[in-house]
């Protein structure tokens, strides 16, 4: 099996974890979790320098899931990477669980930063990247942002910081699934053209298909070799990717499948 095939198979497992968690919780955000599933799979199973036995390792690469509501995807990769038990995904959002609705760095091994209130993750990633530079450390910092999230003004404050300090150890990934809660990005508050905006703020731009494993792998490789400026990967994605009845449907932003829908979803993920 090639590396790409192996990761494609792994991504299916990650998606099953997402569906499992949201179904058991009877709440959560499957749409945006499924749209970043391939990106997170490549990061956690091919790219990141991390150690599941030493989650706070100082030299590790960091991931800031700025769109924190997509915690099911992050928890699924962390569990499958060995940071905690996969079966714990079923406790997601429950009263006695450490798997909070939004990622909590003090409760979940492998979560690098507590997020949830949109717009703050890029600033946090900048802070970590700045300290990497100051201390001559080789770690890289990945910040995952939603295309709706970048409507938050703080994001653009943060892009100026990334640019001012030439943070080439920083890689921003925009999950461009084109949907936010109230509708499409264009309808609600257009953040387009995303690539031109980030380019004018000093970023190296890479446009990719966010579900093409090879393209994701290549983009991370290219980003690592960019010098003296930060990189922004704009990943064109499909909200709800992998589950036929969820794909491109805004109503799946934040709701759980019924038992019947759950069964169909799990079957689809087994068939692909």
């Amino acid at each position: 099996m090639s590396k790409v095939e192996e990761l494609e198979k792994k991504a299916k497992t990650i998606r099953k974890g997402i569906i499992e968690a949201v179904y058991e919780a009877k709440s959560g955000h499957p749409g945006g979790s499924l749209s970043i599933a391939d990106i997170l799979t490549v990061l956690y199973f091919n790219e990141l320098k991390i150690d599941e036995n030493n989650p706070d390792w100082e030299e590790r690469d960091r991931v800031i899931l700025s769109k924190g509501h997509c915690s099911p995807a992050l928890y699924s990769v962390l569990a499958n990477r060995g940071f905690f038990k996969v079966e714990d995904l079923k406790t997601f959002r429950k009263i006695d669980s450490y798997l909070q609705g939004h990622p909590d760095k003090n409760k979940v091994p492998g979560v690098d930063m507590t997020t949830g209130s949109l717009g703050q993750g890029l600033s946090i990633a900048n802070g970590i990247a700045l300290m990497g530079k100051l201390q001559n450390k080789n770690y890289r910092v990945y910040a995952i942002l939603g295309d709706g999230e970048i409507e938050e003004g703080q994001i653009w404050e943060a892009t100026m910081t990334s640019n001012k300090y030439k943070l080439d150890n920083l890689c921003v990934i925009i999950d461009n699934n084109n949907l936010q809660i109230d509708g499409s990005i264009e309808e609600v508050m257009s953040s387009y053209p995303i690539d031109e905006k980030f380019k004018s703020f000093g970023f190296q731009i890479i446009n990719i298909d966010g579900h093409n494993i090879q393209e994701i792998m290549d983009a991370f490789e290219v980003a690592k070799n960019v010098k003296n400026k930060p990189t922004c990967i704009i990943a064109k994605t499909i909200k709800g990717k992998g589950i036929s009845f969820m794909e491109n449907r805004v109503e799946w932003h934040g709701k759980a499948p019924t038992e019947e829908q759950y069964k169909i979803a799990m079957k689809e993920l087994s068939n692909i």
Partner: peptide, 28 residues
């Protein structure tokens, strides 16, 4: 100068950047 960061007129960015810095065992 190496340990000082002028974040410009962007207080929200400044506070969140400080939180990122604090996760690297520094005291912002």
């Amino acid at each position: 100068p190496d340990r000082f960061f002028d974040m410009g007129i962007a207080e929200q960015d400044m506070i969140s950047t400080a939180s990122g810095i604090s996760t690297c065992r520094k005291i912002p």
